[in-house]
Amino acid sequence: MAEHTASEHPKSPLTTYFSVWIALLFGTGLTYYAAKLDLGVFNAAVALIIATTKALLVALFFMHLKGAHEKLLKLVVISTIFFLFILLVLSMVDYGTRTWS
């Protein structure tokens, strides 16, 4: 994997950058118009899926997480998200079940 990315270096990354940029602008428009549609409970889910896709595009291509020589950076990202989820999910364990009894 590492050799693969190393050999990729000479190639100009401009095409990637501009396509990602277009995709991000498109995603922004999409978020805006998806919010105008009545998707019932899925409005929030769609908004979050689009936002996460955009965030991934930025992280992978603009922040070069994709070509990173080391898995270490991915480990940092994954463990951070893991701990963020612990915060959100375990809090929700309380808020979600408070009215049960």
Binding site: T28, T31, Y32, A35, K36, L37, D38, L39, N43, A47, L48, I50, A51, K54, A55, V58, A59, F62, M63
Partner: peptide, 20 residues
């Protein structure tokens, strides 16, 4: 880029609640 990513989440969460 990170500051950009934060905004990518803030925009739908704050501006687009139940807009339809």
């Amino acid at each position: 880029h990170f500051v950009d990513i934060v905004w990518i989440y803030l925009f739908p969460l704050l501006y687009l609640i139940d807009r339809h």
